[in-house]
Nucleic acid binder design. Structure first.
Lengths: 209, 209
DNA sequence: AGAAAGAATGAATAATGATTCACTACTTCC
DNA sequence: GGAAGTAGTGAATCATTATTCATTCTTTCT
């Protein structure tokens, strides 16, 4: 034998892989998964198309990995926002606000993660993401019911309604083509977010803020 | 001259066109727009693929027309549900229930109309539909604010939240592949709808039902 | 240096499906 | 019947992209 993979090489490969992942990200943030072409990704990464397939089984697998990484980050943010000190309603409101702020900051990305139709393997990842998400919210709602600040209700379904209401308001009417119509000034955004959160919190608590 | 289109011929053509539309419907109801193939549509309709192009400019145009017809029907149903006698909240609740019932009855169809990503011309139609829809709800919410049964709020945004909450609960987590997970018994469905409507009505009115 | 093994390349392939168009079949009117 | 025009046909074409693979380039080790 003459060649045996060395640590240096392993690192170089890992770096190449990371680079491909970053470039794929860039494509997805520009127009979602569907329009992210392998050739474009390879071009951005400065490698040949075949090289992509040396690092990933297929386009779908590449996307699934990207998706997993991105959603893990989002779930962590929500978890973080839910872990502040305070009542359940305060914690929920905090996480909704975080969600909305992040979605507005990267609306195509939000759309890709939440609403864009994707291939089965990616959809599989999305389902995991959704479940993680719903579980977090559901738990917080349950906490609120125990604490007495939220009335008895189907916590799972309410968490779904929360996600639906906020997603629709922020990414729903907006295929990437129409991103232009989102409010752009800081004040406009704050007002938008406040209105949505008011609706959501009323929906949960049955009281006006 | 020897041939001039006659009334009989016009009718026959109209019938063929209608037939194509119906078969396209069938395909869309089975798996959404994206998976509706021209060849399949032609097969169902018992005509050659070329014939489709005799009646419609392109696949996209055909879909846009289908979409227009279908959404008009949906908007009419909501309008109808909103026009019953009663307070604004009663009327809104009635229309939400109608919406939910219809979505559950044909979930792929609902998904295709509400959430499936579609080509630009179809998306254009969807935008019109969404606006018609939002306007109806918004008006009813405004009525409620005037009547005093709904507190002051951004009516347009609230109507968006309503649609989002209800859509997510009913069609959101369900790409056509996963339709199986919807509740199937009549009782289950009623409970599901009631929970969603409770959330929505609280979100609007800030009071528990 | 040179042999062995892996990595990278990118032009060629393959698969999918919408759309076309040369041709046939049908309607209408004289 | 037949001329003129329209509708229907469906195999062939075209376009788009993911994926492959024969070849070339690099790295490693003796």
């Amino acid at each position: 034998m003459a060649y045996r993979e060395t640590e240096k090489m392993r690192q170089r490969k890992a770096e190449a892989r990371k680079n491909i992942i970053e470039c794929t990200w860039q494509c997805v943030e520009e127009g979602g998964f569907r329009s992210a072409r392998i050739t474009r990704i390879a071009g951005l990464a400065g490698v040949a198309t075949g090289t992509i397939y040396r690092h990933f089984e297929s386009r779908e697998d590449l996307f699934a990995e990207i998706f997993r990484l991105a959603t893990q980050r989002e779930v962590d943010k929500v978890k973080e926002a839910l872990s502040i000190k305070g009542t359940a309603t305060e914690r929920l409101e905090n996480s909704l606000r975080k969600f909305a702020e992040r979605a507005l900051k990267g609306s195509i990305k939000a759309w890709a993660l939440i609403a864009e139709p994707v291939d089965p393997k990616v959809e599989q990842e999305r389902l995991i993401y959704r479940k993680a998400y719903a579980s977090l919210m559901e738990q917080a709602i349950q906490d609120g019911i125990s604490e007495g600040c939220i009335p008895e209700q189907n916590a799972r379904l309410s968490s779904t309604c929360l996600v639906g209401a906020i997603s629709e308001s922020l990414v729903g009417p907006l295929s990437p083509a129409q991103t232009a119509s989102l409010p752009t000034t800081h004040t406009d955004q704050k007002e938008l977010i406040d209105s949505i959160i008011n609706f959501c919190m009323r929906g949960l608590t049955g009281t006006r803020s």
